[in-house]
Computed example of a mutant assay.
Amino acid sequence: MDRRTYLRSVTAVTGVTATAATAGCLGALGSSGAEGTVLGPPERDLSEAAHPSYGDEMPNFTVPDPLTGEEITVADYEGERAVLWTSFYTHCPDGVCPALILRLRRAQAAAAEGEYGDELSLLPLTFDPERDTAEVLREYAGQQGVDLDAGNWHFLRPESYEAGQSLMEENFGLVIEKTEADQYENLEYRFPHYGLILLANKQGIVERAYPRGPQTDIESLVDDVERVVTA
């Protein structure tokens, strides 16, 4: 099954990726790894997850970067750059999204130090475009220590909440829905967290899916990124 055409997730729990048994693995696993990959098979087999995983094609989509004014198309990076992707929102009240952004930021810093930053694109996508305006995203970048001047970081912002919903469900199998915020949070609404990070190589093949992104060991993730980019 091509996960780009139809993906569904069943349940979202804070910090946990929803999975479904309907999506099979597109890659052929073996001792030397799936076809087209740099890394060997992961310790945890996620081939039954609703989201793309090891050996699958990275979903292709086009979303604006409001800070640069560019339309970012994932497929345009194929042959030139690896991609590190996650989804988030700046009003996240419990630290999950900052933890995701931290891991992308550390990968960005390591790429700059290793001088392979121009071979990596970091693509965090907000599913709350109503509140995550260009101004808010720029301020958030400063708060999180993101280097926007490096030229490899793109905050992706769908045109509308509904567009973001469709993009997340159809491409990543993740159902995004607003829920009422607890009164003490001083928020109008919030979202469940999936915490998914995807790493795809320069050929557009997923090398790693990190379903518990906020708990993923940073050094291991940075090492995976370096191995994939510099292979």
Rank of each mutant, 00 (worst) to 15 (best):
T73W: 08
H193A: 08
E207D: 13
D128G: 01
S166P: 01
Q203T: 14
W153Q: 11
S9P: 09
R3V: 06
E180A: 10
R190N: 14
G79E: 05
L29M: 13
T230R: 10
G204C: 12
E130G: 14
D147A: 15
G15V: 00
V13D: 13
A134L: 10
G36Q: 11
G40H: 04
L123Q: 05
D2V: 03
L46R: 05
P98R: 12
T62V: 05
L39W: 08
H91A: 01
A141N: 06
E71A: 09
D56Q: 15
G213H: 09
L198P: 06
G24W: 04
E226R: 02
A111L: 01
D65E: 04
L46Q: 03
A99I: 01
Y54Q: 04
L100W: 09
L174Q: 14
T230A: 11
D132F: 06
D94E: 06
A209C: 06
V225F: 11
S9K: 01
Y210V: 05
L102Q: 11
E170C: 00
V16C: 01
P52A: 03
A12C: 05
P66Y: 09
A23K: 02
E162R: 05
R131P: 01
E43S: 09
D223L: 12
R81D: 10
H154P: 04
G204D: 12
L102I: 00
Q215A: 15
Q165L: 03
A112D: 04
G30L: 04
K178A: 11
T230K: 11
Y6R: 13
A134M: 11
N171Q: 11
G195D: 12
L137S: 03
V10Q: 12
A49L: 09
E135Y: 01
E177D: 11
D223R: 15
A28G: 13
T11R: 07
S9R: 02
